[in-house]
Structures are given as structure tokens and as C-alpha cells.
Amino acid sequence: MGFLRWYLCSDLVYVVLFPQLLAVIHWPSLVDTYGCLAGYFIAIILRLAG
């Protein structure tokens, strides 16, 4: 049971937060609060739909 939670948490971080991290590192002038929030919600919706 513990492994399943770890797997789901790592999957969520990889799919939802990793693209935002890359955007902030490579394009800091293009990323703002509203863009991060929109990307976060779209990523969650796409992840749950997939």
C-alpha cells in the first residue's frame, strides 16, 4: 500500500509540476502566476482524463 501511494505521488509531481519547473527555468520572462495556475489545472484535468 505504501508503494502505491509513493508511485501515485511521484506520477502527480512528474506530470503536473515538472513542466512548470522547466518553463520557469528556461523561460522565466514568459511565466507568471496566472500561467502557472492555468497550466496546473489543465495538467490535472488531462491527467485525470487519461
Rank of each mutant, 00 (worst) to 15 (best):
residue 28 P to V: 00
residue 43 A to K: 02
residue 43 A to S: 14
residue 28 P to W: 03
residue 35 G to D: 02
residue 27 W to Q: 09
residue 6 W to A: 12
residue 28 P to S: 03
residue 29 S to Y: 06
residue 34 Y to A: 04
residue 6 W to R: 08
residue 38 A to F: 11
residue 8 L to E: 14
residue 42 I to P: 01
residue 17 L to K: 02
residue 9 C to W: 11
residue 40 Y to V: 03
residue 29 S to P: 02
residue 28 P to H: 02
residue 16 V to L: 12
residue 25 I to K: 12
residue 21 L to R: 09
residue 40 Y to A: 02
residue 28 P to L: 01
residue 6 W to N: 06
residue 32 D to T: 01
residue 36 C to E: 04
residue 32 D to C: 03
residue 38 A to P: 00
residue 21 L to M: 11
residue 41 F to N: 05
residue 25 I to N: 06
residue 13 V to Y: 11
residue 13 V to F: 13
residue 35 G to I: 05
residue 37 L to M: 14
residue 40 Y to L: 11
residue 16 V to R: 02
residue 19 P to R: 04
residue 7 Y to Q: 08
residue 10 S to K: 10
residue 18 F to C: 07
residue 11 D to G: 08
residue 25 I to E: 07
residue 12 L to E: 06
residue 47 R to Q: 13
residue 31 V to W: 01
residue 36 C to M: 15
residue 44 I to C: 15
residue 8 L to F: 15
residue 12 L to I: 11
residue 26 H to I: 09
residue 8 L to H: 13
residue 14 Y to N: 08
residue 33 T to N: 10
residue 12 L to A: 11
residue 26 H to E: 07
residue 33 T to P: 01
residue 44 I to F: 15
residue 25 I to T: 13
residue 33 T to K: 13
residue 24 V to H: 04
residue 30 L to T: 07
residue 21 L to Q: 06
residue 31 V to Y: 01
residue 11 D to R: 11
residue 6 W to C: 05
residue 45 I to F: 14
residue 31 V to Q: 00
residue 29 S to T: 09
residue 37 L to V: 15
residue 31 V to P: 02
residue 31 V to T: 01
residue 32 D to G: 09
residue 47 R to M: 15
residue 29 S to D: 07
residue 25 I to V: 15
residue 19 P to S: 05
residue 23 A to P: 02
residue 23 A to Y: 04
residue 34 Y to F: 09
residue 27 W to P: 00
residue 16 V to N: 05
residue 10 S to V: 10
residue 13 V to G: 03
residue 45 I to M: 12
residue 42 I to W: 03
residue 28 P to F: 03
residue 17 L to S: 06
residue 17 L to H: 08
residue 33 T to I: 14
residue 24 V to N: 06
residue 24 V to D: 05
residue 31 V to H: 00
residue 5 R to S: 12
residue 22 L to M: 13
residue 15 V to C: 09
residue 14 Y to A: 08
residue 18 F to Q: 07
residue 43 A to Q: 04
residue 16 V to F: 06
residue 5 R to A: 12
residue 25 I to L: 14
residue 23 A to G: 05
residue 23 A to N: 07
residue 42 I to A: 08
residue 26 H to C: 10
residue 10 S to F: 12
residue 4 L to A: 08
residue 6 W to K: 10
residue 46 L to E: 12
residue 44 I to M: 15
residue 25 I to S: 08
residue 15 V to D: 10
residue 11 D to I: 14
residue 38 A to C: 07
residue 45 I to E: 09
residue 33 T to Y: 14
residue 40 Y to Q: 04
residue 41 F to S: 05
residue 11 D to A: 12
residue 15 V to M: 09
residue 4 L to P: 00
residue 45 I to R: 10
residue 46 L to H: 13
residue 8 L to R: 14
residue 40 Y to D: 01
residue 9 C to E: 10
residue 38 A to D: 06
residue 23 A to W: 07
residue 16 V to I: 15
residue 33 T to H: 13
residue 18 F to P: 00
residue 16 V to D: 04
residue 5 R to P: 00
residue 21 L to D: 04
residue 31 V to C: 03
residue 35 G to R: 07
residue 47 R to N: 10
residue 31 V to L: 01
residue 22 L to H: 09
residue 17 L to V: 10
residue 47 R to F: 14
residue 38 A to G: 04
residue 27 W to D: 08
residue 46 L to M: 14
residue 47 R to P: 00
residue 35 G to N: 05
residue 25 I to R: 11
residue 36 C to V: 15
residue 32 D to V: 01
residue 4 L to S: 07
residue 37 L to W: 13
residue 5 R to W: 12
residue 42 I to H: 00
residue 10 S to Y: 11
residue 39 G to K: 00
residue 12 L to W: 09
residue 5 R to N: 10
